[in-house]
């Protein structure tokens, strides 16, 4: 029976508590323990949040893409719940990435926005995700199929966006985490772990609410069919 599937889960409060503790510790360490960066000094501190959010956004996007393909292949609504949850979380994380990136860009390059490779990619990826969420909300009964298709097409479009954008690269290189001082590296990975917990708490909570919404809808339809509800 469908009623039994929505059990309260301890995963959400546990991950939320872990991320709260982690956040308190990392923000303390970021300001007291890590050394100042060589050229950006204090401004570099946003790095611990910007890059960690970017990692989580890509994790959410990957989760959304994989579960969309699984949904189209197996047609099980649970995959659709996961895809929806991760897409919505990815939109929120992406907004943080773009805003913190813009602040960092202003400090480092003295411009709020520049059409550089990773910025362009993040923006286009984020726009695709926003389109996904809009479709989910307004496409009526075919919303799940439509959105899954968009996710699959968006995944295929990613390498094209990558090759499309110019190679002139002013962005800190991808190996930035490897070249850090040990103290910075420790705090950085602590920050990634913190936001991973936060990401998991959000996604799991959203999956549960999506499942509850779907089950409520199904029960309502069943009630209408049998004449219990009018």
């Amino acid at each position: 029976m469908s009623e039994a599937t929505t059990k309260p889960s301890y995963a959400v409060p546990v991950f939320a508590a872990l991320s709260a503790i982690g956040f308190a510790i990392t923000i303390w360490l970021v300001f007291t323990y890590t050394p100042l960066a060589q050229d950006l000094f204090f401004n570099q501190k946003i790095f611990y949040y910007h890059v960690a959010h970017a990692f989580m956004m890509f994790a959410a996007v990957a989760l959304c893409g994989v579960s969309s393909i699984a949904f189209l292949k197996f047609r099980k609504p649970k995959w659709d719940d996961i895809a929806l949850a991760s897409a919505e979380v990815a939109v929120a994380l992406g907004a943080v990435v773009l805003i913190t990136g813009s602040i960092w860009g202003k400090a480092a390059w003295d411009v709020w926005w520049t059409w550089e490779k990773r910025l362009t990619m993040s923006l286009l990826l984020w726009l695709t995700l926003v389109a996904y969420v809009i479709v989910r909300r307004f496409a009526g009964s075919s919303a799940d199929r439509m959105a899954a298709g968009l996710a699959v097409f968006g995944t295929v479009a990613l390498p094209f966006i990558y090759f499309m954008v110019d190679r002139s690269d002013r962005h800190p290189q991808a190996g930035v985490a490897a070249a850090l001082e040990p103290k910075m590296k420790l705090v950085f990975w602590l920050s990634v772990a913190t936001f991973l917990c936060w990401f998991l708490a959000l996604v799991i909570a959203r999956i549960q609410s999506a499942r509850a919404e779907r089950e409520l809808r199904e029960l309502r339809e069943r009630g209408l069919d049998t004449g219990v509800l009018t």
Binding site: T128, A131, F138, A139, S142, M146, L150, F153, A157, M164
Partner: peptide, 30 residues
Amino acid sequence: VFAATLLKVRSRDVLLPVVLYPLLIPLFVA
């Protein structure tokens, strides 16, 4: 693909470009 999927959706006129353009940006830029 997307126009056919949106066939029965009420707000298809708005949703079609919303879905298409993010995917077609590489094509138009190229």
